[in-house]
């Protein structure tokens, strides 16, 4: 749930960099070319900005950067049962490259992320409906949509497990009414990944709706007035005003959704449980890491997996930031 803490801050910066709330947010999120003014001013301020950033930097270095460095080091070692590392060079990576589970885990993670990303268009429609003038009970609906996101994944998974149960679940009961004999959703290879993805989509919908709603609110109403004076239909307004001005929010939600998608673990673990015959075909990258680190206690090998996850998430996020110039419109 850490993303809940960090998202509003990052969200502000991304969704409305025009307001330039803080220089840090602008510098982090805005395209590099747009920042010459900030850069010039930094020369004036001397070391002051650094001083203000220091407390944050302290946490980032201690709790993020240093562990990454350590993990990098561990990935070249073999761990004893209770600590003690022996340098083994690139052995863990060589082993990982020939491990068939790695390919399965990458494909599963991509499929999951892809399905969860489908929630963004859905969220756009819902957010647009919620922000229609004259819409009543919007706060109620927002709470309703956001609740799954703040609920504990374990609690969510418990309920969905009952729904998905092959013999006694309500989903298969409903399917039975129309003559379909449903599978054991969370225990059958193939179906299990779809089941996990559906729950992932459902839980992440609320977050996307809230961010997109905020993005919609930030679109100046004069633009719509001007558009309608010019005779633009509601659909044309949506396409030519709403969508382009919403792209920064969409971009932010996409980045967060992809990162969360690559971190898929708790939902999968809680929904499928240990001793599930489909787990090997359904495991995600982080599950693979968990399995090696904590079930097989092969922490050096697991560190190598962690480094691969870091590289993949880093590369995908970098690519997204590169690509944003092509489709994100900052007002």
């Amino acid at each position: 749930m850490t993303s809940v803490d960090r998202s509003p801050r990052a969200g502000d910066g991304l969704a409305s960099p025009a307001r330039g709330s803080t220089r840090r947010a602008a510098a982090r999120t805005g395209p590099p070319r747009k920042a010459p003014a900030g850069g010039a001013r930094r020369g004036h301020d001397g070391w002051w900005p650094v001083l203000f950033v220091l407390p944050t930097m302290f946490g980032v270095v201690l709790f993020y950067l240093w562990p990454i460095v350590q993990t990098g080091w561990f990935s070249f070692t073999e761990w004893g049962a209770f600590g003690g590392q022996t340098w083994v060079g690139t052995e863990n990576y060589v082993r990982l490259a020939s491990d068939p589970d790695l390919g399965t885990a990458i494909v599963n993670t991509l499929v999951y992320t892809g399905i969860v990303l489908l929630g963004i268009p859905i969220a756009m429609v819902v957010a647009s409906l919620l922000s229609r003038p004259g819409m009543r009970f919007t706060a109620f609906y927002r709470v309703l949509y956001f609740m799954p996101y703040v609920a504990m994944p374990t609690a969510v998974a418990m309920v969905w497990r009952l729904i998905f149960n092959g013999d006694f679940g309500v989903l298969n009961w409903a399917l039975g009414l129309v003559g379909v004999d449903g599978p054991a959703w969370t225990s059958t290879p193939g179906f299990a990944l779809v089941a996990v993805s559906i729950v992932g989509l459902w839980t992440s919908l609320g977050f996307a709706i809230i961010i997109l709603s905020a993005g919609l609110k930030n679109i100046p109403s004069e633009l719509f007035e001007a558009a309608s004076l010019d005779g633009a239909s509601p659909w044309r307004q949506f396409r030519s005003v709403t969508v382009p001005l919403l792209t920064p929010s969409v971009f932010f939600v996409t980045v967060i959704t992809v990162i969360n998608g690559f971190q898929l673990f708790d939902l999968l673990y809680a929904l499928m449980g240990q001793g599930n015959p489909a787990i090997q075909e359904t495991q995600s990258l982080v599950y693979l890491f968990y399995n090696e680190a904590f079930l097989r206690n092969d922490k050096g090998f697991a560190a190598a997996i962690a480094m691969v996850i870091l590289l993949i998430v880093g590369a995908v996020t970098l690519l997204q930031f590169r690509m944003q110039r092509r489709w994100v419109t900052y007002a």
Binding site: F164, G166, G169, P183, A184, S187, G273, G275, P277
Partner: peptide, 10 residues
């Protein structure tokens, strides 16, 4: 006996 999937779900 039920299948392994059935004994995993329930």
């Amino acid at each position: 006996a039920p299948t392994l999937e059935q004994m995993s779900d329930t």
